[in-house]
Each structure stands twice: as C-alpha cells, then as structure tokens.
Amino acid sequence: MNQAEIHEFLVQFFYKRQATIEYNEQGILRVKLTEELDKRLMNRPFYWQYVKKIGHQGEPMTVTFISDENKKDEKGEWIHYGSPRLEQLFQIILEEGKYTELYENNPSQDRQPLHPWFVCNLLVRYQGAYTHDEMVSVGVYLINGTMRFKMMDEILDQSFSTIIPDLCYKIPPIISTKRAVLMINEEIKERIEMKSAAFAEQSNKLYEKEIKMTEQLFQQREDDDGELLKENIEKQIYDRLYPKVHLKLVNCGLFYLSETQSKNMMSIS
C-alpha cells in the first residue's frame, strides 16, 4: 500500500463500519466514529465507563486523518504506512476477517446446487539462519477430499455473498472441516520437509557451531552457576538459529461454489 492509496483505504474502512464521513478531500478525511470504533481506536475506557455509569449515551470522537504529504500542516492526525493508527485498522480487519461462510453469486435462473469447499490461508514462516515467509492458500473439496493450492488466487475475482442466492441449495459436506484441517496439515508438512533441505542444513550448521563453542567454553568450568548460565546460552542459540517452521493461520472459511467453478477447481490442481 502506498501513501496515495491510504486515503481511499480509510474512506472504505470507515464507510463500511458506519462512521459518519463529515469531510472528504484527497488526503484529508474527517470522520465521526461510531461508539464501537471509538472504543477500539481512541483508548479512553474510563470515559465510556463513566458516561455509561451516569446513564448517558456518550459522544464518539470526531477524528481528522491526513494522508497527503503536502497537507501535513493541516490540523489532524498524520497517517502513513507503518503508523500505529493504520496498524490498528489492519488489526481490526485481520480479526474481523478471520472466518467466513460464503456462497458464490450466480446469475443463472435455474435451480442449482452449490458445492462445499473449505479454504484455509496460512502464513508459513521459516526461521533460523534467516527469516522467510510464504503464503499458502489451500482449498479442500469437502465431498471427495480433492485438495488444491493457490486457492485464493483462483477465487479472488469472483463474487460471493453471505446469504445463499435464490434458487440455490447447498450440497451437504461429507468430509468434516476437522478432517480437512488434518489433511491440510499433513500435506503442508510433507511439502515443507521436501523443499526446506537447504534452509535446514544452513541453520543447523550455524546452530551446531555456536553450541560447540559454548561446550568448549564450559568444559573447564565446574562451578554451580555455570550450568545455569550455559542453559541460558543454549536456549538463546536455539531460539535464534535452530531451524523452525511456524504455520500461522491467516483465515479460513466455508465456500460454496457453483458446479462449473467447483469442477474447474478440481481440474487444475
């Protein structure tokens, strides 16, 4: 996201969450927050506690966000990529977008079935000699267990809604999501172990070298606190250098796809 895109992002963000947009020119946005947004963003729990206690409604704050470099001197909050405020908004999105159940929008007039897919987006982080992230998006067809990768890329441009479209009906899943998660876990682990040989070797080498250095250092020492010190050092070396892979869940959900789309997904895996 670059600086010029931030304004539009803010407009969308607040509009969507029912804040009142009071003023809007490129780079300057004044919004009156909702109570919910105020509580999340403005960090004034005592105010809300107080007004509620005395039986008042409470007045959410009005905030001006400046995202144009040339208008930085205007009165308001300067917001840029990396600023804590934007980070807060990202966090809200990440939380709200954790889970979903969606139905493909379909213009067809005929009665038709929708096929259940479980979609799971994971951040795979390699950490050891270096840190490297990869996004893995997997879909599992909950009827026969077909699995396909890069799922999000395929459906990103599709249109979905949270309510089932008229004339459509769901095909009930045969495979539980629990089972689907297990399958994904197994498959991903297998793939990671196949492709991470170089990473593991490089990290292990570094790790062994440091551990050996520590061993040598403590060889002659026999005092009591030496053991504790050595443990601390070994832990520190392990945490930094030992090859580790973390699977971090970004989000997941049930997607009901039209027959054509579902077949499409299964053919190109």
Binding site: E96, G97, K98, L102, N121, S161, V250
Partner: peptide, 14 residues
C-alpha cells in the same frame, strides 16, 4: 462470519 471484502482484505494485509 465476515463478508467477502473483509476476508479478502485480511488476506492481502497479511
């Protein structure tokens, strides 16, 4: 349950 927009956004933010 989130809507499709937010779900996509969470993905791109990550």
């Amino acid at each position: 349950t989130s809507d499709w927009e937010t779900f996509k956004q969470a993905y791109t933010v990550s």
